[in-house]
Design a protein around this nucleic acid. Sequence first.
DNA 1: GTTCGTGCAAACGGTTTGCAACAAT
DNA 2: ATTGTTGCAAACCGTTTGCACGAAC
Lengths: 134, 134
Amino acid sequence: MTVKEIISLLKQSGIQPTPQRIAVAECVLRSKRHPTADAVWTSVKRKHPTVSRATVYNTLNLLVEKQLLRTHVLTDGTTVFDPHVELHHHFIDDETGEIHDIPWAALKVKGSDLLPGFDVREYQVIMRGRRKKR
Amino acid sequence: MTVKEIISLLKQSGIQPTPQRIAVAECVLRSKRHPTADAVWTSVKRKHPTVSRATVYNTLNLLVEKQLLRTHVLTDGTTVFDPHVELHHHFIDDETGEIHDIPWAALKVKGSDLLPGFDVREYQVIMRGRRKKR
DNA sequence: GTTCGTGCAAACGGTTTGCAACAAT
DNA sequence: ATTGTTGCAAACCGTTTGCACGAAC
């Protein structure tokens, strides 16, 4: 994803593309991981040493609001940001705590439309275990 | 669940059943909801006005450690305690944020054993939507 | 009398907010 | 001139910790 694409994405979403915001968006949208806000801050500071934590947090929240990102809350309460906005499942590594994305089509869930009293809008499967050593 | 049952449950788990701990355990083990630590504190204070937040937190963590409770972290980062330790799924109400337990047997998930590179120990389905008005 | 639990208050860590300075239009 | 953005520091909130007192074996 090029800087130009990021800028036009921001504009499309009604976000003024300032240098700080572009840097934040670059970092998190390109990431294959699921970075915390602080990880983004650390990364952005490399090229933009004066950026404040507040700006990073505000920008990330803005991106979530505009649906360019999703958030996940880990079991220890910290929030991570996920540029992968399409529906997918998650696998959480017991040892490292790393979150891995699992393609939607890898699993089939039956019965969610049959729950009496519940109108299910979306769902996802969260799996826990170990990565296979191989 | 009677007080006697709770006391013997605590003893079985190697937890000394003090009045405060019994009160905390009573509150959270009997609850059909998923209370936060603060909700437990508020509730326990009714009968035990001098109990401290620290004791409630310590006791809840102890119960989790001894596997009499599970925790869930909500999207806003707060932790709730779930006396329902058997495997089950969850439905989260979009409007109220309430967590509802869904019996394990209500859903069928296929494919979790087929993920290359992942050794799935457990999984659960998290659904979001609205309660049906009826 | 040693161990364990309690209550208080202070510390903590991640996140937010208030505010003054500063673009940008 | 108005509107919106930034950086700083302080506030915030849920949770944990340090410590002295007190109860129990």
